[in-house]
Computed example of a mutant assay.
Amino acid sequence: MMKEYHWINTKDLNLPSGQKIILFGAGKGSEDFFSFNKNTGLKSHVTAIIDNDKSMWGNTLFNVPIICPADLSKFKWDKIIVTSVSGREPIAAQLNEMGFSNPEDYLLIGKFPSNGQKNFSILCESLPENYCFSNKACLHIGPGGNFDFETILFQRQAHVTAIDKYDFGMDGKPEILQKINFLFPADIEAMPLEENSFDLVASFAVLEHTRCPEKALSEINRVLKPGGIAVQTIVTRDHRSFSSLNGYTPFSYRKYSDSEWDFISGQKFYQNRLMPCQWLDLARKTGLGILRYETLSKETITPEMKNDFHVDFDNFTIDKLEEVDCLLVASK
């Protein structure tokens, strides 16, 4: 049985063996591609990896240089493979502006892993025991083109709505789209939805990408029915620390000022710098009633690491600074 590659669509990789490849995105998708390339005999030669994050330029991933888009002309290549997931649509637009076309010059193969069952388990653990989904109006923010979670809710006779900024390819236009309400492009900070319209609002690893977290939480509160429940998991760690690149920790972005980080992160799929305790404070500020709050892990911060943090983080205790990722369950 072929190994499952969680971050790339292998079915879209119809490439002649031995081609020179440029990857776009120095993250988990590229790591999956290297593994796929090695284990399937594709034997493509990866000459470089493009990334829009300038802090990565000059680094390497599996001994392959990470370069800026402007340096693309310095390398020989047959095809650009976009392994980025969250940034795939903006990258496609970027490549089109550079004069390239899909699929002649580049392919979009990045995808979000199927976490539908995992996220549904998190949801059920966060709700009252024996919560009944039947006839409940449920909103999922940020499906990422994968609708397993929506399918599970629909099978439990819920009325399902999903919104996202992009369609992310929608993994082959799944049949469930005929049975649910999917809205895109839709902004979580200004959702095109009526107030007091949902019994349940859920998101998983989405809120950390909002530019105005207070607006996002206020919108969740607005669309919730009185007595409705919001379940949010928030991945606060620096997302660059997920890859095999050296030099990144869950706290790497804390060395920058807000404006410096906005410039770095704004070149790709934006991630804000809020810590778990700040999300809790914001939820309360927007009027949400906290039912459950839990930090999901802690990472040790040495004095040297703390000294490298920007002054924006000076007023937080080490205990709070070491908190990483959180679960926020609230009601209206």
Rank of each mutant, 00 (worst) to 15 (best):
F269E: 08
E299G: 06
D314N: 14
L274I: 10
Q267C: 12
F269N: 11
T295F: 08
N272V: 11
E304S: 11
T286W: 04
K298N: 11
D308W: 04
N307E: 14
K306C: 07
L321R: 03
I301C: 13
D319A: 10
T302I: 07
D319Y: 06
N315Y: 04
L282M: 15
Q278R: 12
E299T: 11
Q278W: 04
F269L: 12
F269R: 09
M275N: 11
N315A: 12
K306D: 04
Y270A: 08
Q271P: 05
T317P: 01
D314Y: 07
F269C: 12
C277F: 12
T317M: 00
L291D: 03
S297D: 10
L291H: 00
R292K: 14
I301M: 08
E294Y: 06
F316R: 03
K306L: 11
D281A: 13
L282V: 10
L296W: 03
R292A: 05
Q278G: 06
G287L: 10
W279S: 01
E322Y: 08
Q271C: 15
K285S: 14
F313Y: 15
D314E: 14
R292N: 09
G289N: 10
Y293R: 00
L282K: 12
L282W: 02
L296D: 06
P276W: 10
V311Y: 05
F269P: 01
L291Y: 02
I318Q: 08
L274H: 09
D308I: 07
I301L: 14
D308C: 13
